[in-house]
Design a protein around this nucleic acid. Sequence first.
DNA 1: TGTACATCAGTGAACGCGCGTTCACTGATGTAC
DNA 2: TGTACATCAGTGAACGCGCGTTCACTGATGTAC
Lengths: 201, 201
Amino acid sequence: MKVSREQVAENRRMILDAAGRLFRERGFEAVTVAEIMQAAGLTHGGFYGYFTSKDDLIAQALAEALANSSIRADDLAGYAASYLSPGHRDDRACGCATAALAADTIRQKDSARSVMTQALEQQIERLSRIAPGRTAAQKRNAAVVNWSTMVGALILARASDDPVLSDEILADTRAWLAAQSEVQGKVRAPRKAREKTAGAR
Amino acid sequence: MKVSREQVAENRRMILDAAGRLFRERGFEAVTVAEIMQAAGLTHGGFYGYFTSKDDLIAQALAEALANSSIRADDLAGYAASYLSPGHRDDRACGCATAALAADTIRQKDSARSVMTQALEQQIERLSRIAPGRTAAQKRNAAVVNWSTMVGALILARASDDPVLSDEILADTRAWLAAQSEVQGKVRAPRKAREKTAGAR
DNA sequence: TGTACATCAGTGAACGCGCGTTCACTGATGTAC
DNA sequence: TGTACATCAGTGAACGCGCGTTCACTGATGTAC
């Protein structure tokens, strides 16, 4: 049964969304094409009308998931507080696609790897704007390290079976990044203002 | 054909070694039982004489791979220099099992997850001994953050398609950890001694 | 020490299963008049 | 605006394939005498 052009666009969005969520939750390999199509409300046969292969979908769904990060903040401490929250740790399906899929992407085709690399570069640029440091080079250096720290901490917090250890990893890393933000970034800001910013979600 | 008891022990070691290497290189799911047995010089049929299932092997091979980290150093800067070297980045099969498999392990059975959690706790304790800080709590906090940073940086450096960006991530994070080690950890050590230690492999 | 035989590690064919992908078919859409 | 029909998105059975796992068999090991 043919379907309207709007419905086609809507279906395409549904497939990419479902794939993005399932991939982040269970990895590229463990999720099947049939499962994604079912989650999108379709049957598996129609898949190849939208994508040329599963690898094609992986690259496109990854790009979509990496672009739609829900984490937003104007300062490093606020960003870290949100990124390293228990809520983000526990919601892999809708959380950071880098933390969920960077390790998986290393073993994927070039199409997916290049998408991940572009997103990584963009994220470093974005973090450079709120990173501590006087020169542009210092800010970028700090952004690289801060991003590594956040992604690493989220992966390790998720990897830990033990909720106490997992919470410790998140809390320690949050505190560290907040301190970074304080000491190096905003030496001139008044104390009250700083505390407000750092405490905000 | 029956085989001597020593040969059985040797074969077991070969299977665990091959599995550890292949898993680190390509992930748990992409590697097949037959492939592992072939890499160990055996045929796939014999597998279930050694392990009850692939999941059983995953847990045991992960424990083995996590225990046999080749990275050793007496100070943080030296450890970071080794851990964040291009050589370690490029040799996934023999490198850090945490960086290679932590994200994969999140989606594995409890047996593997508990192995990873134990290794994580041990590594934090180990790093606490060489971490900067005055109190034990400060040292442990720093160890948690430093480990998150190293694992995150290695994963991101591997994820990057672009060798320039990849090298930048390694170099920036190495420099950062060396600075951490300098500023907070060894304020009392004579300058010459510090430089020697930090430069060592 | 030498011999006879029970044990059991390793082999490879075979199992059921689910994967990614293909394809003939269906029927609503959207265009031509 | 209404009607006729070509288009093509979606369906579900079917494809070949490779997976994890099983099992009857083989023949070297290692024990009992």
